[in-house]
């Protein structure tokens, strides 16, 4: 069924400085049935460069989805979010905030800045897996259809 749907690789941009989280997310994504490519950026500056194809990102791909941690060095998640949503090229790419903060103000602020989804980093693994699966579903049902 997967091959039938699309041979194209699902491009995921993960902005996360915590390697443990990066690994955890990658581990969970292993269970994805679809083929995917994960690009990991660890600070806000890199995101800016990535957007402008600077330096090593001159050949970067367009991500299908962006997973953004708010708590990142150099430029924080909100700034990055603003840049993404301010870019003609990237503004339509869904951005999913993955944050350890449950604070309402953060959530509201994120949505106001154009975030498509806000996910609190779950304390239990099975919950996390459920979230990631949700992303997969989302991609399969909406994003790829849009691309078409």
């Amino acid at each position: 069924m997967n091959s039938i749907i699309d041979k194209r690789i699902f491009e995921i941009l993960l902005v996360e400085d915590n390697q443990a989280d990066v690994r955890l997310i990658k581990e969970v994504l292993k269970d994805f049935v679809i083929e995917k490519n994960i690009t990991v950026l660890t600070d806000g500056e890199q995101v800016s460069e990535y957007l402008l194809r600077k330096n090593e990102f001159f050949n970067r791909k367009m991500p299908d989805i962006i997973l953004l941690d708010l708590n990142i060095p150099k430029k924080d998640g909100f700034e990055v979010l603003k840049e993404i949503k301010g870019s003609e090229e990237f503004k339509d790419i869904p951005v999913i905030i993955i944050s350890s903060s449950e604070a309402e103000e953060s959530v509201i602020k994120a949505y106001k800045s154009g975030a498509n989804c806000y996910i609190v980093k779950p304390l239990r693994l099975d919950e996390f897996i459920r979230v990631i699966r949700g992303i997969e579903e989302f991609w399969l049902n909406t994003v790829r259809l849009q691309k078409k």
Binding site: N18, A20, D21, L24, E27, S100, S101, K121, P122, L123, R124, L125, D126, F128
Partner: peptide, 20 residues
């Protein structure tokens, strides 16, 4: 409590991963 949550989540997540 906020900051303690982070490493604990990490421990918890990976242990659960192990278990799984």
């Amino acid at each position: 409590s906020h900051d303690l949550q982070e490493p604990l989540r990490m421990i918890s997540s990976y242990v659960q991963l192990l278990e799984r």
